[in-house]
Design a protein around this nucleic acid. Sequence first.
DNA 1: TATGAATGAGACTTCATTCAT
DNA 2: GATGAATGAAGTCTCATTCAT
Lengths: 219, 219, 219, 219
Amino acid sequence: MKTKAPAEPATRQRRKEARPQELLQAALELFVEKGFAATRSEEVAQRAGVSKGTLYLYYPSKEELFKAVVRQNLSNLIAEGQEMAGQFEGSSSELLGCLLQTWWDRFGSTPAAGIHKIVLAEVRNFPELAQFYTDEVILPADALFSGCVQRGIARGEFRPMPVHEVAQALIAPMIFMAVHRHSFGCCPVNGGVDIDPAAVLKTHLNLVLQGLEVRGAPA
Amino acid sequence: MKTKAPAEPATRQRRKEARPQELLQAALELFVEKGFAATRSEEVAQRAGVSKGTLYLYYPSKEELFKAVVRQNLSNLIAEGQEMAGQFEGSSSELLGCLLQTWWDRFGSTPAAGIHKIVLAEVRNFPELAQFYTDEVILPADALFSGCVQRGIARGEFRPMPVHEVAQALIAPMIFMAVHRHSFGCCPVNGGVDIDPAAVLKTHLNLVLQGLEVRGAPA
Amino acid sequence: MKTKAPAEPATRQRRKEARPQELLQAALELFVEKGFAATRSEEVAQRAGVSKGTLYLYYPSKEELFKAVVRQNLSNLIAEGQEMAGQFEGSSSELLGCLLQTWWDRFGSTPAAGIHKIVLAEVRNFPELAQFYTDEVILPADALFSGCVQRGIARGEFRPMPVHEVAQALIAPMIFMAVHRHSFGCCPVNGGVDIDPAAVLKTHLNLVLQGLEVRGAPA
Amino acid sequence: MKTKAPAEPATRQRRKEARPQELLQAALELFVEKGFAATRSEEVAQRAGVSKGTLYLYYPSKEELFKAVVRQNLSNLIAEGQEMAGQFEGSSSELLGCLLQTWWDRFGSTPAAGIHKIVLAEVRNFPELAQFYTDEVILPADALFSGCVQRGIARGEFRPMPVHEVAQALIAPMIFMAVHRHSFGCCPVNGGVDIDPAAVLKTHLNLVLQGLEVRGAPA
DNA sequence: TATGAATGAGACTTCATTCAT
DNA sequence: GATGAATGAAGTCTCATTCAT
């Protein structure tokens, strides 16, 4: 005798709790693919398997949905890195290498990087987003990376340099590539420059670490 | 004796010739500010001091207007750099320094960089733009920078490294900052990381040039 | 015992089912009255008691709406006539008289005839409509009428004549009047020729039937 | 030595006088081809070889241009027929045959018939046109044809019948075909009924003349 | 809660008409 | 007179959002 599949915890209930997650996932994909304006609310709902009306039960507007997507995908990224850095015991070169790798794995190669692309383009239309993003992403990231550079200088591993500027130079290629992956990287063009992010990152790290060296002293 | 002083063409005529320029200028500003979709055709016309209909006299659609803006602002930028590089006689370090500075002056610090921001975000919705931009901007830029790196290696100034990857690492921070200037750089946030592009570029160059050095040999 | 009285479906639902009908009715009236181009979409919606957007929920464009109106009003008219003709047992004169009368009742005197007026005027701008209308209306009508003429000739009731041309001559006055009714017939003019369609048809039939007679033999 | 070609009367002058004619000609063609609304003023001007502005020097609006086209092409059509009929000395059958042929040559097979198609469709949007057209075309045509029928009855050639209704039946197929020629007749459809107007007219005349005969008396 | 029919502001675009040259 | 650049009202269609069921 078929009773309503008892194996699964009441399907309706499970769906209800999963809804925000599913909606944000669908919205993430579509925003990254098409941009904010070109993504239709109904399409988000469809991809999440619900109706248009249901979307509005969870997010009062497309703008709020966008902000929620940004928050979900970009917060919490920094804490991990910070924690790792605080416990690190090896050389600062190793720390930076480790950090960049982690950063790429956790940001550059994930959909979060696609969101960054959209935020770059839309932030001037969403003033509150600028503050949020600065507080949640930009400042912590700067603190993390410039802190590591500072550590290296303090320990005599790196020559003295302006730490914020070095931090910028460190992360810029990574962000650049992360954005690229979701932009031109998705367009089938003839003869485009085929970039292997891993190779660029390795080269970049190689360059910068030698660049940071105290002259004459091997890293 | 020629009457009808040719120096000052009839007003109507003069406007007609200036119109495309004025419209592209207005469109550039608004696209950079708000993005493609969020910019209304009428707004572009207004800023150029004409009516909605006049815009369509010169560009058959908003999309074509966008493409015209891209063409005007991004093509022709590369040729100059390439020419300069070909005639350069100093060291490759000096050449790279010179090139990056020129690049920043001619691209990064101009509204053209704002267009790059938009293109990044919208290119997936404009397949033909992707090809155009790759051909006109991305490939030439790669050829220019990786050519200079190659020159340095060939002359024994730089250690052997993968040239395309180095080129990426070289230009990425600049593009990153160029985009940033038209994105978060325009948002008044409290406590934001205040980046001085010139300082970052100088630091970046400093780092990379030492990074490219043949070890043990001063630049 | 079934509760939820199925006789009266929920209001929303009932409207949804009735909408296409209501919209087609409104569109028919307005197209006949003003022509295709001069009828505004919003006006159709208003007359059907809905908003502009709702119209586009049911028909993706004004052109498709027009085609739907043509389909609804003109197809299916022929089948009946064909069936009637196939089962008819009286003389061919009676058959033609009966057919013309039916045709007038079901087409000429209904709004459907107004659509024919529009199609005549607009068909050159809608190539696919031309094919559709030829297949659905013109060819079947020709087959019906020329078939009846053929029957009369085969049975020795009518003198031998070119059947398609006779069919044209037979239906032309009716179509002429049908179109007239929705054109000049609606304009209040002073001293216009006041045509009584029934009288013209009767006279026309009278003329043609005697014209078809085998000479010397009474009908 | 080339002087301004003296053979031609000052070109500018000649053009100026020919302008209205050329504009009406261009407008006639385009209105017939595309209908009133779908014809753009500029297109009319272009086809007449003048600029948009010039069109408005001669006709204050598209609507007035339309009316002028109607007037030019449809007035003067009747007088000739009327005159011919008054002087005719043969039998009434011959007169009708002659008249229909003339009518076809002077109206059905000329662009004027195309205008009739447009007028049919647009007259409800141009109330004054209805009166004009009734006075200038419909009433005279009716008078002409019903007069001829009356003549035949009075002379004992035709059996007594309602003359106006007979007149309708007489001209309807011709108008029908005239309109058809500029409507479906211009659309390349597969399998359309291919009508030869001359054959239909001949058949029609044949039918109607026998239909008008006093029974038992050969025409 | 969930749905999806309905709304209507607003976007892009067209084109009849005007008017400075 | 002739031109054609310029205008702006008006039309088609989209889509974020609402709300009766």
